[in-house]
């Protein structure tokens, strides 16, 4: 199944499914609404537990407000639900103890993740937050693959890693930024001492 054909549907753009299967409605933090099949939701441990706890009927799903997912935007959530619909019914992978961990990126997932690093970053956050094990695996695998054949200096550029000097400079800048407040605290302490208090608190 191609990414384009994955059965994730924006409510505004497509008809409501006529199947008897239950489709839950979710809303992203930028108010995009999605209908997602019950089976697809099972890929997310977080959402699966949530809908189980809610105990919605088919009517509830239609009549009650969409379930809000407040810290994921519509663009990211669309990718997440496309992934869940494509992989619905698949077993949740368990760690087989291999080192390094073996994860293959299927063609569909590779196309889905043909995105810029900013969106990939949000996708990993979403997969982690929603506890979608295999989506987290394949997205992290894509990040791990960036390290192939790279020297430490190249890895600093790939992963935006500050050098020790940059870390040190950032630390100094943070200390300097804190100094005015530190001075204020010190002055307040001295003032209280002058007023006869033995303790700052």
């Amino acid at each position: 199944m191609s990414v384009e054909n994955a059965p994730v549907v924006d409510v505004d753009e497509a008809a409501i499914p006529v199947e008897k299967k239950m489709y839950y409605r979710f809303e992203s933090n930028d108010k995009k609404e999605f209908r997602v099949s019950e089976l697809a939701i099972q890929q997310s441990e977080t959402l699966n537990r949530l809908v189980e706890a809610m105990g919605y009927t088919s009517e509830d799903v239609e009549n009650k407000p969409a379930i809000a997912i407040e810290n994921i935007d519509g663009k990211t959530l669309k990718l997440v639900f496309q992934w869940c619909e494509h992989h619905k019914g698949e077993a949740i992978p368990v760690d087989d103890g291999s080192v390094p961990k073996i994860v293959e990126i299927p063609e569909f997932d590779a196309k889905l993740m043909d995105i810029d690093n900013g969106l990939l970053f949000k996708l990993i956050w979403a997969a982690d937050y929603l506890n979608i094990v295999q989506l987290l695996n394949v997205s992290c695998k894509k990040v791990a693959n960036m390290a192939q054949g790279k020297t430490p200096a190249q890895l600093r550029r790939v992963y935006l890693l500050p050098s020790d000097e940059e870390d040190e400079a950032a630390k100094r800048a943070a200390q300097e930024a804190q100094d005015p407040r530190a001075r204020e605290v010190e002055e307040e302490f001295e003032e209280r001492k002058r007023q006869g208090g033995n303790s700052f608190f």
Binding site: V99, P100, K101, V103, D116, N117, G118, L120, F121, K122, I124, W125, D128, L136, N137, C140, K141, V143, A144, M146, A147, R157, V158, Y159, L160, L161
Partner: peptide, 24 residues
């Protein structure tokens, strides 16, 4: 904001960072 050029691995949740490490 995240740069399109590099990937800010240290801004991921720690478990996601460790998941990336586990595949290296």
């Amino acid at each position: 904001n995240v740069s399109k050029m590099g990937f800010p691995i240290f801004r991921l949740p720690i478990l996601a960072i460790f998941n990336v490490f586990s595949m290296m």
